Computed example of a mutant assay.
Amino acid sequence: MLTEPISLPLRDGVDSEAELRFLLGDLAQLSGRVTRLAHRLAGGSEGPATWRTLAVLQTSGPMRLGELAAQSQVAQPTMTKIVAGLVEREWVKRIADADDARAWQIGISAKGIIQLAEWRDGFATALLPLFDDLDADERDTIRRAVDLVRPRITQAYTLPEKTTRKTND
C-alpha cells in the first residue's frame, strides 16, 4: 500500500494553460476518489455501474442498450445484466423505439428516479462528516466550483462524441 504522497511536478512558473491542465487533472482524479470513498462509506448492495446507469438515463433520457453501455462505461453484455436487474426492480422501463420497431430503448422509471435521489442523499450523508467543519466561505467556494463545473459537463454530454475529446488525428 502506498503510504507516501506521490511527488507531482513543480507547478511554479507554468503558463496558464499548463496550470489549468494541472488543475483539471487534480479535479478529475479527486472527483473519482471522492466518488469511490462515498460509495464505500454509504455501502449498499448496488454497484457503481447501476447508479451511473440510472444517472445517465435521468440526465440524457431513453436510449438503446448499446448507447447506454457506452455512456455508462461498461461492456454491452454487462449492461444487459444491469438492465435486466433494473427492469426486475422496476427502476427502468423498456420503450419501443419509434425509429425501429425491432429495437427497444431503456428509460428511467419514477421508481428509478426516487431510488437514485435516495442513493444520492445517502452518498452525500456518508461524506458529511468529512466536510461538516467547513465554514460559510469554504462552503461557498465549493458551491461556486460546482456552479462553474456543472454547465461545462452538462454541455459536454450534449455535444457529439468527437467534439468532447481531443484526438491525434
Rank of each mutant, 00 (worst) to 15 (best):
N168A: 11
Y157A: 14
T167Y: 05
W51G: 01
E17D: 12
E46Q: 10
T164Y: 05
T3Q: 11
D100I: 02
D140T: 08
G44H: 02
L127I: 02
T158A: 15
S72P: 04
A126Q: 03
E90Q: 15
L65I: 03
R52T: 15
D121H: 11
A69R: 00
A42H: 08
W119N: 10
P48Y: 01
G13S: 04
V83K: 00
E161N: 07
T80K: 11
L57P: 00
S16D: 13
W91D: 01
A110L: 08
G85D: 03
L20T: 07
P9G: 06
L54A: 04
A98D: 11
L41T: 02
I95N: 01
E67D: 14
A96N: 11
E138T: 02
R33V: 09
D121S: 13
L37S: 07
W51E: 02
I153N: 06
G32P: 03
W104V: 12
T163M: 13
L127G: 01
Q29W: 06
Q105M: 06
A69Y: 00
L134I: 00
A145N: 07
R40A: 11
P160G: 03
G112M: 02
Q115G: 12
W104S: 11
K166W: 09
D26I: 05
A98E: 14
T59Y: 05
M63Y: 01
P62F: 03
L130V: 05
T164C: 07
D12M: 13
A101S: 12
V34D: 07
D15A: 08
G61V: 02
D121Y: 11
L27H: 07
L23K: 08
T59S: 13
L68W: 00
G66T: 09
E67V: 12
D97Y: 00
L68G: 00
V87K: 05
I114D: 15
L30R: 14
L10N: 15
T167R: 14
G112R: 00
T35E: 15
E90W: 03
V87Y: 01
A28C: 11
A126V: 01
K93D: 07
E161K: 12
D137T: 03
A124E: 10
